[in-house]
Design a protein around this nucleic acid. Structure first.
Lengths: 142, 142
DNA sequence: CCCATTTACTTGACAACATGAAATATCCAG
DNA sequence: CTGGATATTTCATGTTGTCAAGTAAATGGG
């Protein structure tokens, strides 16, 4: 079954696995530099863009909504996030990053070495090629 | 600080983030199809290649050795892995995949849709280009 | 309008994963 | 042989994840 995969494809898959693993190390290290876990950093990253109902956060993170309750609880206890009522639907609670939360996330993001170190080795042409291939691969034929 | 990153690089970073997230979803889904968690699947994948001391597993997974004890315990309870003494050093326990463990991992690996679906959209030329760029990016100038 | 159903969120019980500190057994250098 | 380092486990604790049950509010058919 696995023999169906040609060597080139398998090598690319393994390389992607390596990228994934390195990305995670960097991300978690950057998060913990700011006393955040990976999950907390990801939620804060979503909320830094716009306030979201708990349910939407769960969809983005592909987990159960009940899980989000605890993560937002911890972020809220540290003043990085707040819960607001949704004027349009009283069942909904909107989680929103506070000013401090946005600031923290921006610092975290800019400390993501992954964004620079490995990519810095690529020429502009390589970066463009990589962008196009990844877009194609992800079906984002914009 | 974050403003130092040019738009192209930022887009590539975001695309990689998307790839990472998709890779994880696929990997965890494939693992749970075989009643394994992501961490268990990763350990089983390492042991499918060769037996390893607990400490080496922890290094590969970048976590504390005490954490590996529990993961190997659960794999061992299911007969996918066994602990053997290291003849050269009686402090060391070698974790080794059983025949069933290797079989399970091979099935898991071949069910990783990620290996096919998104990559299938790429031409051979694109795959080669992607491989070269990723190698370059990871500093594997083989 | 009213009631049944659905939806959003929280709570509680529980398992896996992760860390750090302490205990045990073994190795190794002096 | 002894003292210090190493490999593993155990324990305490915290975070993340699931699922089931509960509350509150929206919604739609009669």
């Amino acid at each position: 079954m696995a023999a169906r995969i040609d060597p080139l494809t398998r090598e690319v898959v393994d390389l992607i696995g390596t990228v994934v693993s390195r990305y995670h190390s960097e991300y978690d290290a950057a998060a913990s530099k700011h006393q955040l876990t990976g999950a907390q950093a990801r939620v804060l990253g979503l909320l830094a863009l716009e306030p979201l109902p708990m349910r939407r956060i769960a969809e983005q993170l592909k987990c159960e909504p009940s899980n989000i309750t605890g993560i937002v609880d911890r972020l809220e206890a540290r003043g990085l996030v707040e819960r607001r009522p949704d004027p349009a639907d009283r069942r909904v609670k909107l989680a929103a990053a506070t000013a401090e939360g946005r600031q923290t996330y921006e610092r975290l993001r800019s400390s993501l070495e992954f964004a620079r170190e490995p990519l810095a080795q690529l020429s502009a042409a390589e970066r463009t090629a990589l962008r196009d291939i990844l877009r194609h691969m992800l079906g984002l034929e914009a």
